[in-house]
Computed example of a mutant assay.
Amino acid sequence: MADSADTSRTAVKTYVPAYQKDEWQSHADDLEMSQSEFVRTMVQAGRRGFETDHEEPGSPDANPGGNALETQVLNLLSSDTYSWEELLEAVSGDIESRLDDTLEELQADNRIRYSGRHGGYTTLEDDGN
């Protein structure tokens, strides 16, 4: 951020499904954050994957966009010792629930469906019907 950047606060408004807001609030509570702080932090974390001219703070190399996994692993290991399985579980988060939610949303939007004929999930464009 440039030294001349405006640091005054302003509101940002978005609309999400009620279940998603509840999930965000629950996660924010778990992290002892306000919901605003949680959303702001998650947006900034998500933007790292799209930036190409910023280095992740604390990263030992000049990897544009940073390496969030590296930071997460180092943060975890700074406070405890983990086995491979424990580290994998800690960094993967709740990927099963996220995948399930995404599949439900895609099906609700009629973009995919479960097809026994195709042996699993398929896009409707690939269905041939």
Rank of each mutant, 00 (worst) to 15 (best):
Q25D: 04
V73Q: 04
S34D: 05
L69N: 03
N67R: 10
D6K: 05
R48S: 05
V16I: 07
S8N: 10
Q35N: 09
S34Q: 06
E37I: 08
D3T: 11
R113Q: 12
N110L: 14
Y82C: 10
D109T: 09
V12G: 02
D101Q: 11
N129H: 15
S59N: 05
L103M: 13
S83N: 05
T41F: 10
S26R: 15
S97P: 00
S79A: 14
E51M: 07
G46T: 02
L88E: 15
Q25Y: 08
S34I: 09
M1L: 07
E56F: 01
P64M: 06
L31D: 09
H27P: 00
R9P: 04
E23K: 13
T41I: 03
W84C: 12
R47P: 02
D61I: 07
Q107A: 13
S97T: 15
F38W: 09
S36C: 12
G119N: 07
E96M: 14
L77E: 07
G128I: 06
D53N: 01
A62I: 05
T10K: 14
S83Y: 02
K13S: 14
V12D: 04
L69D: 09
Q20P: 01
E70L: 14
G46V: 07
D3E: 15
E70V: 07
R48I: 03
A5M: 12
D127I: 11
S8E: 10
E104P: 01
A18G: 00
D109P: 00
A11F: 13
V39T: 00
F38S: 00
T123Q: 07
E89N: 10
E96K: 10
D101N: 13
L124N: 08
R47V: 07
S26I: 10
A18Y: 01
T102R: 14
T10R: 15
Q107W: 05
H54Y: 04
R98V: 14
A68S: 12
G116I: 06
S78P: 03
Y19S: 14
D94K: 09
V12I: 12
R111D: 13
K21D: 05
D101L: 12
Q25F: 09
Q20D: 06
V43A: 07
S4N: 10
D94R: 11
S34K: 02
G93A: 01
L76A: 07
H27A: 15
R40A: 15
F50R: 03
T123M: 03
R40V: 12
L103D: 07
E89V: 11
F50N: 05
E89I: 10
D30Q: 15
Y121S: 06
M1V: 08
S8P: 00
